[in-house]
Design a protein around this nucleic acid. Structure first.
Lengths: 194, 194
DNA sequence: GCAGCAACCTAAAGGCTTTAGGTAGCGGCG
DNA sequence: CGCCGCTACCTAAAGCCTTTAGGTTGCTGC
């Protein structure tokens, strides 16, 4: 019988695809085996466990998202950079809800430290450089932006905004504008530059 | 043999307890049966399905959270109300992570419409009354606050702030302060009151 | 005191994960 | 060219979860 040519990479790719189709928590080794026309047990030669598979998908998603954000950020600073980050983030989540959910899969500390998650953090801080915040304000701001980007996108994705007839796009832009204003207002009070 | 005295209410309560102990997505009809010293199939007389059980837990959590927020809001307005809402919300999530996750379980539209979720929305809008925002700013603000409260709490709960040595409490207060300032800045530009 | 309604049970099917151990393509070496 | 061995893929089986069907039995009220 012909071999299916399964590899961890192809599995991860297909898993990400599947996540976008049916939701990340419906991603299952069994379903993947089905799609590859292969018996379930066979996949365990390529992937250690279901958790391992999900971790790989998460890492892929983090990587992809970081790439998008990185591209969006290129050559921009200040409010432009903030908006570019925000929009890239949200766009990715909307285009790839399953992968986005995967990116929020809990990784163990070592894996997380080696993931593209650190690029996200670095980029966020880079965006904030344009606002000249002193510590600990900068950390507060990172957390605020991380929280709202994630929270807004998740609420939007889960249909939480369906009740109200206001374009989520419009709200998003309003929020980004507000955040920009708010951050500018926080500009390091004394002349304490970084 | 003595009867265990299972009721939908007790199941829901125990399910919420279990969620806080092991995480909402580890809540299982089987485990609950074990805890009640009863065979799994027996629970299906009290609960329609696993999904039904989870829905009940979600409704309970929404109710409890709305109660806490409602208590916190009593007699407050303006920034005080904003902070009370925020703190009550975050405190509930920290005290009951499993229930908090349950509260985010996706409900079908009818169930959602009959849930305490609408109280949440009403209270949020009530808080914003203190800032005299005109539509659609008010909706934008609701979404911003909803997003950030949820997003921040989720990031904090998932350990996302562990890397940085800044007290999450401090960041939270900073964020609430910022949001307050930001909302005050948005005060209905013309004299267009509600 | 017993009739009947729940509450609880056994049985069974079907899905997912994971491990153990067998079979057979296929690339490379003699 | 052939056959050797690696490894991709397979069968089998155990364990856990959900859900349905249909049988007992405890309790409550007449």
């Amino acid at each position: 019988m012909a071999r299916a040519g399964v590899t961890p990479q192809r599995l991860t790719e297909a898993g990400a695809e599947l996540a976008d189709e049916v939701g990340f928590d419906q991603v299952t080794v069994s379903e993947l085996a089905r799609r590859f026309g292969v018996k379930v047990a066979s996949l365990y030669s390529h992937v250690r466990s279901s958790h391992d598979l999900k971790t790989r998908i998460a890492l892929l998603a983090l990587e992809e998202m970081a790439d998008r954000v990185s591209d969006a950020l290129a050559g921009r600073s200040g409010k432009e950079a903030l908006a570019a980050f925000a929009d890239a983030y949200r766009a990715y989540a909307r285009a790839h809800p399953g992968r986005y959910a995967a990116a929020r899969y809990r990784l163990d500390p070592d894996t997380a430290a080696a993931s593209a998650g650190v690029r996200h953090a670095r980029m966020m801080r880079a965006v904030l450089r344009g606002y000249h915040l002193a510590e600990p304000d900068r950390t507060h701001a990172v957390r605020m932006l991380g929280g709202i980007f994630h929270g807004y996108v998740e609420l939007e994705l889960s249909g939480g905004f369906a009740h109200t007839p206001v374009d989520p796009e419009e709200s998003w832009n309003w929020i980004v504008d507000s955040l920009d204003a708010q951050l500018r207002a926080h500009r390091a009070s004394p002349a304490s530059e970084e």
